[in-house]
Computed example of a mutant assay.
Amino acid sequence: MQKPTFVYDGDCSFCTSCAQFIERRIPSHATVVPWQFADLDRLGLTLEQVEEAVQWVGPDGTVASGPDAIALLLRDAGRFWEVPGRALQFKPVGLLAWPAYRWVAGHRHLLPGGTAACSLPQAQR
């Protein structure tokens, strides 16, 4: 694998809106792809991982989830994006980031761009 890959839930409109923002505004080298169209085996990811949180797979095979994945995406973008990326990796911020991420993930159907499908488990979509 040459480039990092950022994997998100393409069935969720909120997640897709966030991914589109990333592609338009954050100059990461990563391929941004919905897990439904990703080769999970090649990336070394499981269905459980991608259903639980966004994933970052580095060129070296390093895998990070949730806010840790977002931090690596931001750091990869460089320039001023590296600052919030490093902040997310700062231990006290990271301890708060996971509960915040889980809250957003659990309420994404209520957020801008979210739809009722965002609240359903994958098996029911």
Rank of each mutant, 00 (worst) to 15 (best):
P112W: 01
A105E: 01
F21S: 05
V104T: 06
G114Q: 04
I22C: 13
G58W: 05
R86H: 03
W98R: 15
V7W: 06
A30E: 09
V50W: 08
E48A: 15
Q55F: 08
P84C: 03
S65N: 07
D9C: 02
G66F: 02
A97L: 01
L111Q: 01
S65D: 08
R25I: 01
E51A: 06
L88E: 12
E52V: 03
G61V: 06
Q55R: 15
W56T: 06
T16C: 02
G58I: 04
I70A: 15
P99V: 06
E52Q: 09
Q122P: 04
R125V: 09
G61R: 12
L96P: 00
V54M: 13
C118E: 08
P27M: 12
V83R: 12
T62D: 13
A71G: 11
I26T: 02
P92A: 02
V83E: 00
H107R: 13
P112T: 03
S119A: 14
E82D: 11
D76S: 03
V83G: 01
P27E: 08
V7L: 04
V54F: 09
G58E: 06
L72A: 12
Y8H: 10
L45D: 07
F21N: 02
W103M: 01
D41L: 05
A123Q: 12
S17I: 00
F37S: 11
R102F: 00
V32Q: 10
R108M: 05
S17T: 10
F80K: 05
S119K: 05
G61K: 07
I22P: 09
C15L: 02
F37H: 09
C18W: 15
A38M: 03
W35Y: 15
Y101Q: 03
L110H: 07
A87Q: 00
P27H: 13
Q2F: 13
Q36I: 01
G78C: 08
G113D: 03
I22Q: 11
G114M: 04
W35Q: 04
D68N: 12
S28T: 15
A123C: 07
W56M: 06
L40I: 08
T46V: 09
T5V: 15
W103D: 00
D39L: 11
P99H: 08
Q122L: 12
V63Y: 03
G44Y: 07
F14W: 13
W98L: 10
G78N: 09
F80N: 04
P27W: 07
G10I: 01
S28M: 04
R102L: 11
T115F: 00
W56L: 06
W103L: 10
A100H: 04
L47H: 04
F90D: 00
Q20D: 14
F21A: 10
G94Y: 01
Q122W: 10
L43H: 05
P67W: 15
E23C: 08
E23H: 04
W103I: 00
W98T: 11
P27R: 13
G58Q: 05
L43Y: 07
D9Q: 03
T62Q: 14
V104N: 05
F21L: 10
F90Y: 15
G85Q: 08
A87P: 00
W103P: 00
V50N: 12
V63K: 14
V33Q: 10
E48T: 08
W56C: 06
S17Q: 09
G66D: 07
A97C: 01
E23T: 08
Y8I: 02
R79H: 14
V57C: 11
F80M: 06
C118D: 15
I70T: 11
